Simulated assay, not measured.
Amino acid sequence: MFNYFFIKFGIAYILDLILADPRWLYHPVIIIGKLISFLEKFLYKAKNKIFSGAILNVLTLSITFVVSLLLARTNYVVEIFFLYTTLATKSLANEGNKVYKILKSGDIEKAKKELSYLVSRDTNTLSPDKIIMSVVETIAENTVDGFISPAFYAFVGSFFHIELFGQMVSLALPFAMTYKAINTLDSMVGYKNEKYIDFGKVSARVDDVANFIPARLTGLMFVPLSTLILGYDFKNSLRIFFRDRNKHSSPNSGQSESAYAGALGIQFGGKISYFGKDYEKPTIGDKLKAFDYEDIKKAVNILYLVSFIATLVIISCSMMYNIPDLRVFFHL
């Protein structure tokens, strides 16, 4: 059976670069978010919050998987379209560029407002340096969540098929979309605050496990390689990765953030305020230079190149796997 995954993923990636997340599109992640909110209304009432939170996780992931499987069975066009919606390269780049342009215009208050849509930290008291740091940090962290992880799970899923109503269906889309559900659950209920410390525990742990391999591939391979091609500090990117990658409270966020910090010669962390409380986050990277607006542009450049290199790797591996089928396809 010929596997067209490398073609489907290539088209999905191109659509991501061209369309990003169109405002007219009722994005699947929004639908997943509404499903989570709906289920939470009933499940949060249970006394055992860890158990009910686990049920929320299982129900959300199961429904997402089944719906995605049905969508993938429809036809290639539908499958490619929804596969594209799991990728967020241009959307993430656009958000970074938006704050960059506002900062360059000198409107700090507007930059704080725009940043507040991207991060959970308090932005009203941030200095320009902290705004730049927050934007670059967000791009670095979401390089994994927004592209590498969904691409990774789409690739893994492409090796598996299920017969559904007499038709073999690839699990590329179900795997990628289920990952997006995992990530959405973590972003909605995975907080370590009073409300979600127990209810969101399972969702947070599942997200940690799901991002484990993609985060390390990003920090160890994709970011340093992109840094080398772009002429940024390749050696320092690797040095800071190995030194600081485990300093973050998250087991995965520090993997990509450390590689970005080293590449740009900047330092993440320090005093940050969340929900009115100040926290002293461990520092990642060395402060070899002061923050500059251009650090945002450089981070965006790394993001784009990371996604491009990862796509080449995925397409190449997929084609190699299908060499026998390709020979038949082209009558060689």
Results as ranks from 00 to 15, higher is better:
residue 136 V to F: 05
residue 179 Y to W: 06
residue 1 M to Q: 02
residue 205 R to P: 00
residue 150 P to T: 10
residue 318 S to V: 15
residue 241 F to H: 13
residue 119 V to G: 01
residue 69 L to P: 01
residue 312 L to A: 06
residue 279 Y to I: 11
residue 189 V to M: 10
residue 43 L to D: 03
residue 255 Q to D: 07
residue 143 T to I: 15
residue 59 L to P: 01
residue 103 L to P: 04
residue 220 L to K: 12
residue 20 A to G: 05
residue 215 A to G: 10
residue 327 R to N: 13
residue 57 N to Y: 14
residue 56 L to R: 12
residue 321 Y to W: 14
residue 55 I to A: 00
residue 219 G to T: 07
residue 287 K to W: 07
residue 16 D to Q: 14
residue 119 V to R: 10
residue 157 G to I: 13
residue 267 Q to F: 07
residue 181 A to F: 10
residue 202 V to M: 09
residue 78 V to M: 12
residue 69 L to M: 13
residue 3 N to D: 08
residue 298 K to C: 03
residue 193 N to G: 01
residue 327 R to E: 13
residue 163 E to M: 12
residue 170 S to M: 04
residue 93 A to F: 02
residue 195 K to F: 06
residue 28 P to V: 07
residue 277 K to G: 01
residue 73 R to Y: 09
residue 328 V to P: 00
residue 13 Y to T: 15
residue 289 K to G: 04
residue 176 A to G: 03
residue 245 R to W: 10
residue 174 P to A: 06
residue 311 T to G: 05
residue 170 S to H: 02
residue 5 F to K: 12
residue 155 F to A: 12
residue 207 D to C: 06
residue 202 V to W: 04
residue 37 S to N: 10
residue 58 V to I: 15
residue 91 S to K: 15
residue 273 S to L: 09
residue 305 L to Q: 03
residue 196 Y to D: 08
residue 8 K to E: 10
residue 195 K to R: 13
residue 90 K to D: 04
residue 50 I to Y: 07
residue 111 A to Q: 08
residue 85 T to G: 01
residue 13 Y to Q: 08
residue 52 S to W: 12
residue 227 T to G: 00
residue 139 I to A: 01
residue 108 I to S: 02
residue 114 E to L: 03
residue 35 L to G: 09
residue 241 F to T: 08
residue 165 F to E: 09
residue 55 I to Y: 02
residue 239 R to H: 05
residue 25 L to F: 14
residue 197 I to M: 07
residue 16 D to F: 11
residue 15 L to E: 01
residue 273 S to A: 12
residue 254 G to A: 07
residue 74 T to R: 13
residue 92 L to Q: 03
residue 285 G to C: 14
residue 267 Q to K: 15
residue 287 K to H: 03
residue 187 S to P: 01
residue 59 L to G: 00
residue 256 S to H: 11
residue 80 I to N: 02
residue 281 K to V: 15
residue 317 C to I: 13
residue 147 F to M: 11
residue 151 A to N: 05
residue 278 D to C: 03
residue 111 A to G: 02
residue 232 Y to H: 08
residue 245 R to Q: 15
residue 219 G to I: 11
residue 75 N to E: 03
residue 243 R to E: 06
residue 148 I to W: 01
residue 13 Y to N: 06
residue 215 A to P: 02
residue 212 F to P: 00
residue 308 F to E: 01
residue 26 Y to M: 09
residue 160 F to T: 05
residue 73 R to Q: 09
residue 298 K to F: 09
residue 32 I to L: 14
residue 225 L to R: 08
residue 185 L to W: 10
residue 253 S to C: 01
residue 132 I to H: 00
residue 308 F to Q: 01
residue 208 D to S: 12
residue 302 I to C: 03
residue 125 T to E: 14
residue 291 F to M: 07
residue 24 W to F: 15
residue 39 L to H: 14
residue 331 H to E: 14
